[in-house]
Simulated assay, not measured.
Amino acid sequence: MNVLDVFTEFIFLEDKPERSDIIFIPGSDEGVLAVRAAELWKEGYAPVILPSGRYGKLTGRFTGDPAYGTEWEYLHHVLREQGVAEDAIWREDRATFTYENALRSREVTDAAGMSVRTAILCCQAYHARRASLYYQACFPEAKILVSPVVTKGISRENWYRSEEGIRLVLTEVEHCGSQFGEVVRNAAEKKLTGRLQSEI
Score class of each variant (00 low, 15 high):
residue 2 N to C: 07
residue 6 V to K: 00
residue 7 F to A: 05
residue 8 T to W: 06
residue 9 E to V: 08
residue 15 D to T: 11
residue 17 P to S: 03
residue 21 D to Q: 13
residue 24 F to M: 04
residue 24 F to Y: 05
residue 25 I to T: 03
residue 25 I to Y: 04
residue 26 P to A: 11
residue 30 E to V: 12
residue 30 E to K: 11
residue 32 V to Y: 11
residue 42 K to T: 06
residue 42 K to G: 05
residue 49 I to C: 07
residue 53 G to T: 00
residue 55 Y to N: 08
residue 56 G to M: 07
residue 57 K to L: 09
residue 57 K to S: 15
residue 57 K to T: 11
residue 66 P to Y: 03
residue 66 P to D: 02
residue 72 W to F: 14
residue 76 H to T: 00
residue 77 H to R: 07
residue 81 E to F: 10
residue 82 Q to Y: 09
residue 82 Q to P: 13
residue 87 D to V: 15
residue 87 D to H: 13
residue 89 I to H: 01
residue 89 I to W: 03
residue 90 W to I: 02
residue 94 R to C: 10
residue 101 N to E: 01
residue 109 T to F: 09
residue 110 D to N: 12
residue 112 A to G: 09
residue 123 C to G: 08
residue 127 H to S: 13
residue 127 H to F: 07
residue 133 L to I: 07
residue 133 L to V: 05
residue 137 A to V: 05
residue 147 S to E: 02
residue 150 V to K: 10
residue 154 I to R: 02
residue 154 I to D: 05
residue 154 I to S: 03
residue 155 S to A: 11
residue 159 W to I: 07
residue 165 G to N: 06
residue 169 V to L: 04
residue 170 L to Q: 02
residue 178 S to C: 06
residue 178 S to T: 15
residue 179 Q to L: 14
residue 180 F to N: 09
residue 180 F to V: 11
residue 186 N to C: 14
residue 187 A to C: 14
residue 188 A to L: 15
residue 189 E to L: 13
residue 196 L to A: 06
residue 198 S to D: 15
residue 199 E to C: 12
residue 200 I to T: 07
